[in-house]
Design a protein around this nucleic acid. Sequence first.
DNA 1: GTAAACCTGGCA
DNA 2: TGCCAGGTTTAC
Length: 272
Amino acid sequence: MPELPEVETVRRQLHERIAGKTIREVSIFKTGRETPVGSKFVQAIVGRRLKGVERRAKVLVFRFDDGGVMLGHLKMTGKFVFVTGSRRVTPEKHDRIFFVFDSKTHLVWSDVRKFGYLKIATAGETLAALSHYGPEPLEAKPAELAERLKRKSSRTIKAALLDQTVIAGIGNIYADEALFRAGIRPTRKVNKLTDDERLLLAKHIKKVLAQSLAQKGTSSNDYIDTEGEKGGFQNFLRVYGREGDPCRTCKNSIKKILTAQRGTHYCVSCQK
DNA sequence: GTAAACCTGGCA
DNA sequence: TGCCAGGTTTAC
């Protein structure tokens, strides 16, 4: 599911509804590979009050009043969804964990592919987990982002964009979309780009992420937010998921290739 | 660098 | 039946 706009949308909604609340009850139905199992996890978080939910890159950081932290990553299909109305008693097929805060706030963690994780982390583990990421693209200046990209000189620009240590939070959708908007082919080597091109790309990275966040993310596959709602940015995609469709600028057919081991969409005539 | 691994479901 | 999927890590 998640790249920066989707994770940030989820973060905002989680923070809005659970900051200041105490976890009263936790039920674990199934666990992913990295999800802590059983009574230990339950004991670790029941009774603790959440101070708030933060985000670094695509990682959700749940901070407790007592200074403790739970880290969460949605990976491909992880979802947090609030259950409204009557409390869900029987887990649905891919539900993993229920968190009960109060009579009106029941939160379900589900994950079809089980790549996602939730884990209690010490201060040291939290620091280690979050320290290697590149700058937050919505906060950094374009010049800084351009400079970061330049450091991966021998790689393709697509691979550099997907590298979370270069810039945090970009994934396959927004890498392709930013490259289209900047008119740059995904297969170009970083060191073959001009300074102007890297700067233009940096500006479009910020722009496309901000536009998507304003739409609460992209639901071209199965992403939904914590209210079970779809995002709206799939209506604004120019290349991602549009293989064979006409380019919105030049009408040529959008191509899909493999770059950096990822499906990569681009327009042959608009991207040089 | 590139491939494979984690896991399940959907679609051609 | 086989291939692909928004992510990331680990191994040749």
